[in-house]
Design a protein around this nucleic acid. Structure first.
Length: 259
DNA sequence: ATGGCATGACAATCATGA
């Protein structure tokens, strides 16, 4: 079973990329972030034609998340949740469902803008609510996948220039501590279960030719609950879509689980 | 110190991202 997460930075713009990518891989579940679409405009039919069922929670202009499930895999999607309990939040940043015996959570963490800003406070409060909710989810479902754009680079090796990024949003101590708090729930960073190439990142600024210069951050993650981690046989970042014309600034992350 | 580049809403710039 393959599960992927991808911040597409506008599903409207990136739909052709996504369809080609789905055709080239055998991904069973895809977590999307930054769809930037209201639900009426979600490309249900194009994805159905590609063999995928969609569940989504969108809004105008910003945010928006979705879960795609490959119909041939007949995994289903039940108990769909599209908001964090205990957080009064109009922003569409979370969708979760029971798929193929797993509790799959697709999350688009707030960016935080800059350390100390209102948006940074919101980011920290959002993560706090996520942790509280996940604690309950893990108690009810031992097999949990938390996949998405975390907007946090957890360690120095996840940042192209840790000195320059020290204390900055995406790499500040409070954010990195929040990431460790998530792991402390009993989650494992699937990417670090395996040897990985140096300078492995999932996001590169559009500006300054950052991708070509390998100036990126690893901020998109797939965390697995302890009960699930032993089934994981691979975690890779697919940078091919980032090479294309008019790419998303994020690359997809793919996790493989043994049956 | 700032913008770079991209996207969407909107109709010239502005909010937001990371």
């Amino acid at each position: 079973m393959k599960i992927a997460t991808w911040n597409v930075n506008s599903l409207k713009v990136r739909l052709p990329h996504l369809l080609e990518w789905l055709a080239a891989h055998q991904i069973d579940v895809v977590c999307l972030q930054e769809t930037k679409l209201v639900d009426e405009n979600f490309p249900v039919e194009a994805l159905a034609a590609a063999g995928y069922d969609s569940a989504f929670a969108g809004q105008k202009t910003y945010n928006g998340v979705a879960l795609l499930t490959r119909r041939a895999a007949t995994l289903g999607a039940a108990e769909v949740v599209t908001a964090l309990p205990g957080l009064d939040d109009p922003q569409k940043r979370l969708i979760a469902a029971n798929i193929g015996g797993l509790r799959i959570v697709c999350a688009y963490f707030p960016n935080g803008q800059s350390v100390g800003s209102d948006k940074y406070d919101y980011k920290m409060r959002w993560i706090e609510a996520l942790i509280a909710w996940l604690r309950d989810e893990l108690a009810r479902h031992p097999q949990v996948v938390l996949a998405g754009d975390f907007n946090i680079a957890p360690e120095e090796r996840d940042v192209h220039d840790p000195k320059a990024w020290e204390g900055q949003v995406l790499f500040s101590e409070r954010e990195r501590q929040a990431f460790r708090d998530l792991l402390a729930l009993g989650l494992v960073d699937s990417f670090r279960l395996f040897d990985q190439p140096e300078r492995s990142y999932t996001w590169w600024d559009y500006r300054m030719m950052a991708f070509r210069r390998k100036m990126g951050l690893r901020i998109d993650h797939v965390l697995l609950s302890a009960a699930l981690a032993p089934r994981c046989t691979a975690c890779t970042i697919d940078i091919e879509p980032r090479r294309r014309e008019q790419p998303s600034d994020h690359a997809p992350v793919i996790v493989t689980l043994d049956p």
